[in-house]
Design a protein around this nucleic acid. Structure first.
Lengths: 336, 336
DNA sequence: GGCAGTTGTCGAAGCGGTTCAACACGCTAG
DNA sequence: CTAGCGTGTTGAACCGCTTCGACAACTGCC
């Protein structure tokens, strides 16, 4: 292994000079800098990460805790991850992967100074991990909103606003009997905040617009989708406006609606809440409210790195929903 | 931060004793061990990862390079990842996430001593990353088979055997006109080895059994699936045995086959190559050859950690394919 | 010409562990 | 009674890097 001393010797300077060339924390004359850089290049020198972490109390690694549990949509998760990783790389940081079930991992990476910061996904309303990371010395950003953030920063899509936007769109098109086909029951049982916020937005706006909204949980399986649609149409057969917030079930919901004589885009209007690529990958391009997963991941990294210094107060950023009308929209009874 | 010296002081021993209690590399009397452990507990002591890495030349971190590119099936990737992460945790290791496009990351984590070992997924026949990691001081395991492993160890499903098993199953059921609906064209263009190995197995066994096999690449989209099925049925209308190796397209392939008057499980026999949960999540439970993604991930970790010492010669492990018959199988013309 | 202020470089002190050689102690064997 | 041995513990030397204070050399100013 080549060390900083090897480089120093090769360049005819001291180790500290090499260090300053690397960090730029002191001015170094152009000729010395050039000599040092040449030596680094020639020897293929890379600072030892552990030594650097020890001396500088900075690891250039951020921890990312991802859910690998049931009920979450894996491709969407991956978009978050991609956003986090690419943005982290932009700032010369690597990403250490933790899984949701490994709660002790938080203490491990935190107390062991393995990482400079944490990003946690899929936050529940009353998430047991929040107090743990709130007590850590590293800054943390939550993707999602707990009931009490305990001083931590949060980012997410503004699901409540998304609910309102969806209802406004449907009501504006002449629908008054609306429904939500949502997350799997286990997600609701966990009180995952996005599901609850979406429902709140839907209900608020519906109440203010004289519309009704029936809510169905929905397993992320073909049969779950069929069941949800059937239950819905039994309970509220006049439904003409449907909001779907379940990527995995979406195709099957559309298929079942058609089978039951409600063709999306013709007989019923369907708004999906999902990433754009998912909306476009259906039988017909879906009117959708984009879930900008990758962007959210990037923003999370921006926020957490901005707080490395320790100053910056915490904040919550809710990204405004954007509804894009596509072919699954249809005029409702009031407009015909 | 509480350090090893704090613990030593609290327990009335030297720092080295604490270290030996932690590592178990020397015998420590029961009473001292107890005192030290109590002090550790009381102070909430965690060794500093950087310091440990510096002194011991071990990081307890392994790097995992995952593909976030187009054409790969994300849920399957996640299963690999889950396998790697859980197994790594079993051996007290954490996982650093690298993305496939970040080739320079290999040198970074390797030369910078950020990790003890590497696992790389989605290996192409002539993968430019292979020489890079082959030159690293850390052991590496490849998930997939390059043309020349350059002394590295590999794990994967034995796709060639899987191809033979699939053909044997279909021919045994009376089918002679077979087809493969496979990976997207961009995957084939990359010469990803699993796709090529599967085809080789299919063709070999077909040739030996007097069957024919038509091969169609297939985009991982609904329309790609439709196109592939249509092209196939135009080119080989007598096809009755279909092997599908494309998780994302699978549901749409099944739907299109039915639309074209070939109901899976009745008119045509379909064998899927995919994880079991995917096989079970279709309209009908699919006869499938399991892609044991999580197991492969675990084996990869076992192999790479076994090589930490440096001794152990490299090896290639190909997991035997297991075909499970379910409802998508049907008797073929020769058996009716 | 002397002094204060810059600029560029260096030496040395950590950072928090691991590990090796050495040593103190109590036992057994001769 | 002593030499020899095993057991348990320790001090000190690193591991490779960052950073602070010091200092030499040069600048510009009065």
């Amino acid at each position: 292994m080549t060390t900083i001393d090897d480089v120093a010797r090769a360049a005819g300077v001291s180790a500290s000079t090499v260090s300053y060339v690397l960090s730029g924390k002191r001015t170094i004359s152009a000729p010395t800098r050039a000599r040092v850089e040449r030596a680094i290049e020639k020897l293929g020198y890379r600072p030892h990460a552990g030594a650097r972490a020890l001396a500088s109390a900075r690891t250039s690694v951020i921890a990312l805790m991802v859910p690998l549990r049931v009920g979450v949509n894996v491709p969407v998760i991956m978009q978050f991850v991609a956003g986090v990783v690419t943005r982290a790389r932009d700032f010369e940081h690597d990403v250490l992967l933790l899984t949701q079930d490994d709660v002790s991992g938080l203490d491990r990476v935190t107390s062991g100074s393995m990482v400079d910061a944490l990003v946690m996904m899929d936050i529940e309303a009353d998430d047991p991990r929040v107090p743990l990371v709130a007590a850590a010395k590293q800054p943390t950003v939550l993707i999602g909103l707990p009931q009490d953030p305990e001083g931590l920063s949060c980012v997410d899509l503004d699901f409540e606003a998304a609910g309102r936007v969806a209802v406004r769109h449907l009501v504006g098109a002449g629908h008054t009997d609306l429904a939500l086909i949502g997350s799997p029951p286990e997600v609701l049982r966990r009180h995952t905040s996005y599901a609850e916020r979406l429902m709140r937005g839907l209900r608020d706006q519906a109440a203010g617009s004289g519309a009704t909204v029936t809510v169905e949980a929905c397993d992320s399986t073909p049969s779950g989708a069929v069941r949800a649609v059937d239950t819905l149409l039994d309970a509220a057969p006049d439904t003409t406006g449907v909001i779907v917030h379940n990527e995995a079930a979406l195709p099957h919901v559309l298929a079942r609606l058609a089978e039951r004589g409600r063709v999306p885009g013709t007989d019923v209007s369907v708004v999906a809440v999902c990433p754009t690529d998912v909306a476009l990958a259906q039988r017909i391009p879906m009117t959708s409210i984009d879930l900008p997963a990758e962007d959210i991941g990037k923003v999370a990294v921006d926020m957490v790195l901005a707080r490395l210094g320790g100053d910056q107060p915490s904040e919550t950023r809710l990204l405004a929903p954007v509804l894009t009308e596509r072919e699954s929209s249809a005029p409702g009874p009031a407009a015909r």
